[in-house]
Structures are given as structure tokens and as C-alpha cells.
């Protein structure tokens, strides 16, 4: 079995646009206190891979890093 896809977020870079939460709500959330990105799962299931890649591509601040399996 190959390694899982891994997601990392950079809260310092995040601008709180909420794009990732719209695209992959199972993986990303916004912090109640500051509206910045919160990672719900760093190794999401395969069913989320496409959404996670799209979230990273569309992140205006390039705050999402995806390490492919």
C-alpha cells in the first residue's frame, strides 16, 4: 500500500478567504476565534483527494501544501 496523501496548512500565510472550507469541508475548517484555516485531518481519505487538490490550487494565499502519495 502506498503512502497516504498528506495535507499541511500555513496559518501565518492564510488570509481567511474560506475557499478551502467551501471546497473540502471535511478536511478544512475556519477557526471560530480568528477565521483562519484549521486542518481537520492531515491524512484525508482517498475520496477527498480531488477536493483537497482543488482547495490547494484555489487557495489565494498558497497556504495549503499537499504532499502526493
Amino acid at each position: 500500500m502506498s503512502a497516504p496523501l498528506r495535507v499541511a496548512v500555513d496559518r501565518d500565510a492564510c488570509c481567511g478567504s474560506g475557499n478551502c472550507v467551501r471546497t473540502a469541508p471535511e478536511v478544512f475548517d475556519q477557526d471560530d476565534a480568528d477565521g483562519l484555516v484549521v486542518l481537520r485531518q492531515a491524512e484525508p481519505p482517498e475520496s477527498e483527494y480531488d477536493a483537497v487538490r482543488e482547495a490547494a490550487y484555489n487557495c489565494p494565499a498558497a497556504a495549503i501544501e499537499v504532499t502526493e502519495p
Partner: peptide, 13 residues
């Protein structure tokens, strides 16, 4: 400045 506003406009709010 932006961070003073992000919680105000976040999706949940």
C-alpha cells in the same frame, strides 16, 4: 487589519 475582519466574514458567521 485583515485579521481583525476574518472572523466577521467567515462562512459560519
Amino acid at each position: 487589519f485583515r485579521r481583525m475582519l476574518t472572523p466577521e466574514f467567515m462562512i459560519k458567521h
